[in-house]
């Protein structure tokens, strides 16, 4: 039986924000509303990151996803004629996206279920997440340490640089 305590209530609030926002994104016909629901959902995600002792990820979620990407999406929607009032709820590719969504759901579901109830699972409902907050310093060291994540970090940087150069090339007049 679940015990009602403060973290659970806070978790419920953020979970409702995250899932409700996500449902709003899918359900709303007005694309601007959809983008704003996306922000609500991302905010709920940021709250969950705080609860998981990852405040850095929460701040980055707000900064990058809400402050930059969502604004970009809203910009794109507003600059596209007639996108604020779409009539159809589905288009011709609905079955493709349905399959993809189901596959993704299955993968996530397995990833959640297997560690707890699987053959090698710990079979405890109250899995303890990390008690200590990993500081920003540890994260910074992990990203540049030769034994840890320096290669993925550099590859991601290279990808971003390539994308930026590509954007400049596309936007140039001549």
């Amino acid at each position: 039986m679940l015990e009602i305590n403060l973290p659970l209530i806070v978790f419920a609030i953020f979970a409702v924000l995250a899932i409700g926002g996500a449902l709003g994104v899918v359900g709303s016909r007005n694309l601007i509303h959809g983008a704003l629901y996306l922000i609500v959902s991302l905010f709920g995600g940021a709250g969950l990151f705080v609860m998981l002792s990852a405040p850095f990820l929460a701040a980055v979620q707000v900064l990058v996803y809400i402050g930059a990407i969502a604004i970009l999406i809203i910009f794109a929607v507003m600059l596209t004629r007639g996108m604020a009032q779409t009539k159809e709820v589905v288009n011709r590719q609905w079955w493709l996206s349905a399959i993809l969504a189901l596959v993704l759901l299955a993968v996530i579901g397995i990833a959640v279920v297997m560690p707890v109830w699987g053959p090698n699972g710990s079979n405890v409902v109250n899995l303890q997440v990390a008690e200590t907050t990993a500081g920003v310093a540890e994260l910074g060291i992990a990203l540049v340490d030769g034994n840890q994540y320096v290669l993925p970090f550099e590859i991601a940087s290279l990808l971003l640089t390539a994308a930026m150069i590509g954007a400049i090339v596309v936007a140039r007049d001549d």
Binding site: I39, A59, V62, L63, I66, G67, A68, A70, I71, I74
Partner: peptide, 8 residues
Amino acid sequence: AVGSVGTL
């Protein structure tokens, strides 16, 4: 992060 919400 909080300041960027003002833009929104």
